[in-house]
């Protein structure tokens, strides 16, 4: 019985890990130089395959760049000395729950919108210190200086 309990606990942990993986909202695809992804204040060096979760902070160094693709095919690529947080992300097309809210603090960004902007344009917004960019599609560049 104890064995069974341990097996069940192991299964729960495994299921939890699988769930966490399934929860990823996107992945890092390209990295040059210094770049990091952090969630909950803990930064880890970015590499192709690093998962993104809601709240992720994407950051590049002076020599860095970083490209990510979200589950809805939204693409963001960051030039050097750039910081962007992904505050909100929901992609459940079946139930119409769609949201992409990001905050660009500084740097340069190449943005190619995906399915969320196509299905529900008003659900996409990119905040900057001086204003908000609303995305009706599809490809734009933004530079933010502090």
């Amino acid at each position: 019985m104890l064995k069974l309990g341990a097996a069940f606990a192991a299964l729960c942990i495994w299921a939890g890990a699988v769930w966490a993986q399934a929860d990823a909202i996107g992945y890092v695809k390209t990295v040059q130089g210094g770049a990091s992804v952090s969630v909950g204040g803990r930064a880890q060096p970015a590499q192709p395959g690093t998962p993104l979760y809601v709240g992720a902070v994407l950051r590049t160094d002076k020599d860095g760049s970083l490209g990510v693709t979200f589950k809805d095919n939204t693409i963001m690529s960051l030039g050097p000395d750039t910081e962007i947080t992904v505050d909100e992300y929901l992609f459940l097309p079946g139930s119409g729950e769609l949201k992409l809210g990001a905050n660009m603090l500084r740097g340069t960004l190449n943005y190619i919108s995906g399915l969320i902007a196509k299905l529900k344009p008003e659900a996409v917004s990119l905040k900057t210190p001086k204003g908000i960019i609303g995305v009706r599609g599809t490809h734009f560049l933004a530079k933010v200086e502090e």
């Binding site: 695809k29 390209t30 990295v31 040059q32 760049s65 970083l66 490209g67 990510v68 693709t69 693409i75 690529s77 960051l78 030039g79 050097p80 750039t82 340069t108 960004l109 190449n110 190619i112 560049l141 530079k143």
Partner: peptide
């Protein structure tokens, strides 16, 4: 935007 564009997945 050269580096940002070059990093496009």
């Amino acid at each position: 935007f050269g580096p940002a564009l070059a990093a496009t997945p």
